[in-house]
Design a protein around this nucleic acid. Structure first.
Lengths: 338, 338
DNA sequence: TTGTAAGCGTTATCAT
DNA sequence: ATGATAACGCTTACAA
């Protein structure tokens, strides 16, 4: 049986209140008694029961992290950074992977709220739906604790957003490719999430501003059931064989970009001379292919740091920005020659 | 303010005891009252306070997951599977990333135990040290809750191990490469963890059993500070230029194997004709390179399922196997031609 | 400066 | 079948 505050108080010959004061760094403790108590605490390696503490304080010092799939390269990085930041500030992380099925989100939120977490972090823009009904669960959650969303934006009291301006990043990258002389660009995406839409709109804005005709014909949605890179490559191959020509590829995700490289290799097209490729997320995958993948970096660590900073601020009652927007940047590697 | 059991009991005109009985599915409740209470509960969307429950039950229904770096591809997958399995069985996951610095492990364990988790999962063999002193923190932890270690083995009461027989997998893969006619094999590794050692020993056993002379000269440890694939490739390049010849590469990790492929591409060596490569973990990286990487799969999902099954069993007082060992298998792709 | 006691929201043991 | 009530381990007025 772990020791309780009573055990410690008895051993130190003081009341539990005094032990509690020592534990919580109250000023109203004589230095000698503080030392006496601390010695006992350390000697017996006593740690207070967090549940009991939570009952009194109405706070578990724990944040619920919801994400669709923590094994996804991008999400895993986000979860990792978040957990590190939170821990550094004395908070624990309750991780909950929801999958991409929207129906159960409400359940997961209820579940995690019943644990009396102090806040909720939604990792990934797939948590934001288009209809009000789809997002009701966020509104419900925000009634209990502050809700932070990473990589998406949602306007509501007690909901805070941290994101990268995917639209601008994509726009800039596209402009750069067009200005390098490539105007037949295949745009690959596989998600209609908040951030997925932003990326696409950035691409479209760029193509329009450069007056590229018929660019829509080269926008291809890869069904999300296609998870194997080989299969995606085949899909691109068929698309090309159907008579579409393109000398650039911009993908909403590094995986899709890698598939494009595979397509090129299979079909004897040289990258980047015959085909330029840009990915998104600047993940580890960028360095696995040859040539290495040019990719858009969305400064994930900066985002998570800001998110946690905002959360902690909100929890301590400070006024915090409702929305923090960072800009991404294009990291150039071997799959482009501009 | 969230509703409490008192609020519900008042609204339903029963005592809190009855509400509690309904909540916990006790038999001693008249059907009509059960329904009455349930209606109120659902109407107000009431969920019991987990901390309070934990105080009474001395269980938070929460498992602490410790891992060095949840953004590592392999560990991320493990964490994901574990979280899913635990959730399916009604347990939450408290995630704590420790980094690879051993000194703080004791602190992390204490921290997470103070949250009154019901069990502890150590993900990754880097948690197991060689000296008794290094492992003392596990022993301390096991005094409070069952400790499960994934991908490593540790013998102690209340500590349970689930792992893949890395030694055998590595041995079999090596034998297969040797029997295909390649005996000058570069062995790459970057970790001396429990599982790292097992892999190496499997390789060595194979080489010995095949009577390959001087195989030790081709065993190369990549310093873990080399995280960039390009840098590792350069390292291999230098090693080759120093006069070592090899026509096979077996790596303790897919990342290292990818680096070997990069080395080959840079130096005009064709894979697999001139150089065969085998990786370890069968991660997503295997499909990012060209040709795709042959890799050893350690059946991670099977392991995590078993681990959670064992944990749940232990928690409910059943007798469970102290050690569950699975075997890996070689998944052949383009970097080998046997 | 220190101690006493109420309260946090449950579960479980008694009675009834 | 249901209701009081103690217990869980802590924090924090309030008293001394």
């Amino acid at each position: 049986m772990p020791l309780t505050i009573y055990d410690i108080s008895k051993k130190a010959n003081v009341s539990i209140a005094t032990v509690s004061r020592v534990l919580n760094g109250s000023d109203n403790v004589r230095e000698s008694t503080r030392k006496k108590v601390m010695d006992i605490i350390e000697k017996y390696d006593y740690t207070p029961n967090a549940s009991a503490r939570a009952m009194s304080l109405r706070s578990l010092k724990t944040i619920g992290i919801l994400c669709a799939d923590s094994s996804d390269i991008f999400l895993a990085k986000a979860v990792y950074y978040l957990q590190q930041e939170l821990q550094a500030r004395g908070y624990e992380s309750l991780l909950c992977c929801t999958g991409y099925n929207l129906d159960l989100k409400q359940n997961y939120v209820n579940l995690i709220l019943s644990k009396k977490v102090d806040g909720l972090i939604l990792v990934g823009s797939n948590f934001i739906g288009t209809t009000e009904e789809e997002n009701q669960y966020i509104i419900d959650g925000s009634a209990q604790v502050p809700v932070m969303v990473l990589n998406a934006s949602f306007d509501y009291p007690n909901v805070y957003s941290t994101l990268c301006d995917d639209s601008s990043s994509m726009l800039e990258a596209t402009i750069e490719m067009v200005e390098s002389g490539i105007s037949d660009i295949l745009y690959l995406y596989n998600s209609d999430s908040y951030s997925g839409k932003k990326k696409l709109s950035g691409f479209e804005m760029a193509m329009k501003s450069k007056h590229i005709a018929n660019y829509e014909n080269l926008i291809v949605r890869i069904d999300s059931s296609l998870t194997q890179i080989e299969d995606i490559a085949s899909h691109i191959e068929e698309f090309a064989k159907a008579g579409h020509t393109f000398h650039g590829v911009i993908a909403a995700d590094d995986t899709l970009a890698i598939a494009a490289i595979k397509y090129a290799q299979r079909n004897g097209r040289s990258v980047p001379d015959d085909l330029s490729v840009i990915g998104y997320n600047n993940s580890i995958l960028t360095s696995c292919c040859t040539p290495e993948l040019t990719s858009i970096d969305n400064h994930l660590e900066t985002q998570t740091t800001q998110l946690v900073k905002t959360l902690i601020g909100v929890l301590s009652g400070e006024e915090m920005p409702k929305k923090s927007i960072f800009s991404g940047k294009l990291v150039k590697r071997g799959t482009t020659n501009f």
